[in-house]
Computed example of a mutant assay.
Amino acid sequence: MAFRGPKVWLWRWRRNPLKRRADAVEAWVVLGAWVVTVLAGVLAGLAATQSVEHGLARERVEWRRVEARLTEKAPGTASKQSATSSGDRVWGKVRWIAPNGSSHTGQVRVHPGSAAGTAVSVWTDPQGRLVTRPATVSQAHLRASLIGCLVGVSAAAVPFVGGRVLCGRMERRRIDQWDTEWARFDPLWGRKTG
C-alpha cells in the first residue's frame, strides 16, 4: 500500500515547479464544474418548487366542490359496511350543473347500490369538467418540495457529468503525452556508458 501523506487543501492552486499547465486548466475546470453544478441544481430546484406550488395554489382557488346527482342506480348491493367504508366504491354516472349554468355528466366513484338521485360531492374546474380534489396546503408543499428536489438533482447532474467527462478527456490526453515523452527518452536510458 502506497503512503500518501496528509491531505493538502487547494493543492491545485499552490505554486509548484512540477505543476504543468494542464494541471492548472484542470483545476479551473473542476472549480467551474462544481460552481455551475451547485448553481444549476439550486436555481432549477427553486424554480420548479415555486412553479408547482403556484399551480397547486391556483387549483385550490379555481376548483369548486359541486353537488352532483346519480342518474341511475349504482352497480352492486348496498350494505351498512360499504356505506361507512371509503374503500368499497364503484363507478356511477352523475349529472351536475356548472357555474355557468351548463349541464354536465361524468363518472365518479360512489358507494355500491346507491339509488338514482343520490347526492354526490364532486370537484370541477372553471369549465365544469371533473377534476380530483385539490391538494391541501401541506400536501402541495410536500409535492412541490419533492418535485423541486428531483428537478434540482437532474439539473445539477448535467454540468457535473460534463465536468467529469472533460476531466477524463484531459487525463487521457495527459497520459498520451506522457507515453509519447516516455517513448522518446526510454531508448536513451537503455544505452550503457562506459
Rank of each mutant, 00 (worst) to 15 (best):
S114I: 00
H141N: 15
R15P: 02
A98S: 13
R169V: 06
A157R: 14
L188R: 14
R109I: 00
T105A: 03
G41R: 09
T136Y: 04
K93S: 08
H141L: 14
W28V: 03
V61W: 09
A83V: 01
R129C: 01
W13V: 15
R172Q: 15
E72K: 07
R14T: 02
Q50T: 01
G101L: 08
V25Q: 07
G101K: 04
Q177V: 06
G152W: 15
T84I: 06
L188D: 09
R174V: 02
R4D: 07
S86G: 01
T124K: 15
A57I: 07
V151C: 00
V120I: 02
T180W: 14
Q81H: 08
L166V: 00
S114F: 06
S103C: 00
Q81A: 05
A24G: 09
W123F: 07
L70P: 01
M1S: 08
V30H: 12
W96S: 01
R21H: 06
W189P: 03
Q177Y: 15
L43V: 03
V165H: 07
H111K: 10
V122I: 12
F3E: 09
G163C: 10
G152H: 14
R14G: 00
A156V: 00
G32Q: 11
R191M: 14
K80D: 06
L130I: 06
G162P: 00
G41I: 07
K192T: 06
A155E: 05
V25I: 15
R95T: 02
Q127I: 00
G168T: 04
Q107T: 05
I97K: 15
G106W: 08
V151N: 02
A44N: 05
E72A: 11
S145Q: 10
G162E: 04
A144N: 03
K19C: 06
T180G: 03
L166P: 02
N16Y: 04
A78E: 12
G163W: 12
A27R: 07
Q177K: 14
S82D: 02
V35E: 12
E59H: 08
L56T: 13
V52N: 07
W91M: 12
A144F: 09
H104L: 00
P126Y: 05
G113M: 10
A157H: 15
V165T: 02
K192D: 13
V158M: 04
A157M: 15
V110Q: 12
R172H: 14
V61L: 13
P159A: 10
K19T: 08
V36L: 13
L130K: 10
W13F: 15
R191P: 01
R69A: 05
E171F: 08
P159L: 09
L188K: 15
H111L: 03
Q107Y: 04
E171T: 13
E26P: 01
